[in-house]
Design a binder for these strands. Sequence first.
DNA 1: AAGACCAGCCTATACCCTATAGGCAGATGC
DNA 2: GCATCTGCCTATAGGGTATAGGCTGGTCTT
Lengths: 198, 198
Amino acid sequence: MRSGLTTNTVILRAADLSDELGFNSLSISAVARRLGVAAPSLYSHVRDLPALRAGVSALALEELSDAISTRIAGRSGREALFGFAEAHRVYASRSPGRWQSLQHLTAGGMAGSAAVGRLVALTESVLHRYALRPEWQVHATRMLGSFINGFIALAGSGSFSHRSPEPESSWDIAIDAMHTLFSSWPSIDGPDPARKLH
Amino acid sequence: MRSGLTTNTVILRAADLSDELGFNSLSISAVARRLGVAAPSLYSHVRDLPALRAGVSALALEELSDAISTRIAGRSGREALFGFAEAHRVYASRSPGRWQSLQHLTAGGMAGSAAVGRLVALTESVLHRYALRPEWQVHATRMLGSFINGFIALAGSGSFSHRSPEPESSWDIAIDAMHTLFSSWPSIDGPDPARKLH
DNA sequence: AAGACCAGCCTATACCCTATAGGCAGATGC
DNA sequence: GCATCTGCCTATAGGGTATAGGCTGGTCTT
């Protein structure tokens, strides 16, 4: 037992490195250099590069869910919606490599995992106040998730740069618009306007 | 002059290969094998791997714009909006590698290019009928673009799989919702409800 | 205490990819 | 015919991935 590496340590350092270099530049050899060991030494802790990357994705998913959980605690309706969205954006901004790793999540990889289930549950809690019918809750989930992911990707690639107004306001307006939409979508109890005030 | 390779041929074949293997697996050596030449031979036609990839992105952008142009021809308002969005989705489905290459476009890379300008113009023509104030047109552009890109990415990664209702209906509902939104957003002539009927 | 075993590190290495250097051969221009 | 150019080639350096086998320190058993 020399430097005391563990699988978790390797993955955590890999995640940190991906934030610095970009997820696509993450490599076994770069992590090994960072840890001051020879590259083959890492195979005692991770099976191969894809497994290392999957480890970073799993870590990112957990961290994101924690961030969301914190941001939406004690909130509902519009406030929860904004908190939910903002948690993504802040996470992507602070941990770009980790965020990128989430784009590589596939249904086959982690579909049945507790971590994905947790994120789904958080999304449902955010939409809970809208009391949408099940199929409409799915539509809302997909629309919200698509917007968030797409906005962050496009903003990150500079597509919104150098153009007025600031992307921040577009973000707010879009989320507010979705809040309005979800508030008016078919709810569990039917079209009760009074109930739909949030 | 032997096999008659040209830069365009190399890029086109690279694009085809990226659709088969995924954009991230595109390599100089894979393209060389496909073309039946030695890898170093390709450097007569492209400067390096990043340049090859940029070539694929430029081609994809052109093809997508063509597809959009075709899909929205003779349409306006709601029809144009659906056609615009559908063109993206069909393109991403038929040419997954090419579509992925577009995720690597950055402002620094092609911001000033005619091709990006063309896509911006197409987006504007789609939104033209809504007669939005300039800053609101930007918000609409960003919301629409974010949703489209995000939806395609999430659907592609399997996030919407194995869950009712079909993603197709979520797509339709979201675009229809945005149509409704844009129809009610501040327009150039102010809040004229009669004008806002599409 | 000594020996066996194990885990985690190491070096060596095969294979693959990227990109550069220099050579060769065919086509073109004078 | 000769010189030049272009587009291909081989050779190769350097970097990354992953496997094989060796070494060493720590732990367990006798």
